[in-house]
Nucleic acid binder design. Structure first.
Lengths: 141, 141
DNA sequence: CTAGGTGCAAAGTATTTGCAACGCT
DNA sequence: AGCGTTGCAAATACTTTGCACCTAG
């Protein structure tokens, strides 16, 4: 690790108001170095290469800590359990990051057209799923 | 249930190539009547009010059947396990509905500006999470 | 009749928690 | 020294599966 990376990590911990531990630092560096959307298990495997005694629970605890402190984010905000979409009309979601509530909003109202089209790279876009993350009226207080 | 609802359900089963069973019908009607984004457990509770002997496993099996047949959809496509976003730049996801792969795409390239703003209803939009659902190059074959 | 559907219980995966020992600050 | 952090194991939450019985077609 370079000196600037170490300083960066220290200020991350300071902002979050948590201790600078070796495990936390290695988990942080590991996440920084990984690409894509790793699962806790994948992160755990990598961290274990540097700290064989680390536990999966510690990886979970620190991932949550980083997410709460906005150091990293989650790919999906509602991954806890399967949820069925009962609203048949095209719409998107207003997701409150504080109270986790999900409200529907009309596609038109958000001003995002969702037509089928081919994107660069050849991906055929058919449907769009938009989550607007922010604060609901109650949580803005 | 009205006659047209019954017919609607029959054609749903026909398209999906599955049998018309009492449990399946009640689960379908229950979903139609529910608002928001119910969990399997919530759906199960409602169905149990009409069929006390129904099992949670049957509810799960039928929810999946409906989702596979595009009769209903999932709120989130990657809810199986926690995934950490390691890409710090603003970007969105190309999600292939066939092979479930997730690729990043620059926010700019999709032409969707993500600035903080207040929406009707008072929701403070801070960040956008856009999933583009479709078929990747390989799965279009 | 018979292939698919159901209910039950057990298994499987993902995640969290209690607690004693440990290490930052 | 004191409190947050760690590792372990056990607990919990969510979902799937195997199997015997049942039912629609």
């Amino acid at each position: 690790m370079t000196k600037s990376e170490a300083n960066e990590f220290r200020s991350v911990c300071e902002r979050a108001g948590v201790a600078v531990t070796h495990q936390r630092q290695v988990i942080y560096e590991t996440l920084r170095a990984m690409h894509g959307h790793p699962s806790p298990e994948e992160i755990y495997e990598r961290v274990k290469a540097r700290i064989p005694s680390v536990s999966l629970a510690t990886v979970y605890k620190n991932i949550h800590l980083f997410i709460e402190s906005s150091v990293f984010s989650e790919v999906s905000l509602h991954h806890g359990s399967l949820r069925v979409e009962t609203n048949a009309k095209p719409h998107y979601h207003l997701v409150c990051t504080s109270c986790k509530s999900i409200t529907d909003i009309d596609a038109a109202e958000l001003g995002f057209a969702s037509k089928e089209r081919k994107l660069r790279g050849g991906f055929l876009a058919q449907r769009y799923s938009v989550d607007v993350l922010g604060l609901c009226v109650n949580c803005q207080k």
